[in-house]
Amino acid sequence: MDPIQQAMLKKSHAAKLERRGKLISLFCISLIVVVVLAIFFFVASRGLATFFTNKVNLWRFLSQTTWSPAVKDASGQPQVGALPMIVGSFGVTLLSAVIATPFAVGAAIFMTEIAPNLGKKVLQPVIELLVGIPSVVYGFIGLSVVVPFIRNIFGGTGFGILAGTFVLFVMILPTVTSMTVDALKAVPRHYREASLALGGTRWQTISRVVLRAAMPGILTGIVFGMARAFGEALAVQMVIGNAALLPTNLISPASTLTSVLTSGIGNTVMGSLENNALWSLALLLLLMSLAFNLLIRWIGKKGEIK
């Protein structure tokens, strides 16, 4: 046999390198998957203890309005009603999305349809900077500007859902805007040309053709923004007032799932009911994040079919 024949029948250095490289990269990716599974496992095992170990009724957990796990009510049941936090979380999330959407869509239209040059030179960097500002800085500004502002106008302490909404509005604005920009850019040129050729004004073209075609993408952006708002912890915690009460208005102290978690988890003993109840809130947070994910996929699928 000649040396080339022999070499071809042996495992070459390159083949060994390839094998090793493939294993290394497989290891890295597996690690990510394992981490995700571990997060679900650990948070679920803690969060479910409230219901399985402490025998708290799930429905009571979701519907009761008194949150003081250390105290038992008249019937001897621990008071772990998470409704105030659930309402608080959904409240700030929905309100901030409602305010952010017109701004984000407007800004995106401005950047893609009205003044692309100005958009690229001014608005694009502005949006990128807004993304980059850390959430504690938003919280600090909320605390030192927004809260006093609300206090001066509406009275009260200034803390509450309204303050949280304002802070989150600015925080999710860049997310929704940049995803809407992508959605608008993906609308084929000839849609616009066809509409303009038929005598439509620019605004008619935008509102009737472009926005409609980009709708799934815009919705995805809004849901992404909501997911971010729902999961944001510190900025909200700094301005919402942290009172685990069912909010009756927008300017009295309230709380969200994340705010109670950040202020509470360090002050409870691991394994106690107080602690388990907090992990149940974390589990709820995790499941909501999953729900937002599913919603985004569902919108994506719907969009494809059309």
Partner: peptide, 8 residues
């Protein structure tokens, strides 16, 4: 399969 493609 016996042949080392890289060498080949």
């Amino acid at each position: 399969d016996k042949i080392d493609v890289y060498e080949m």
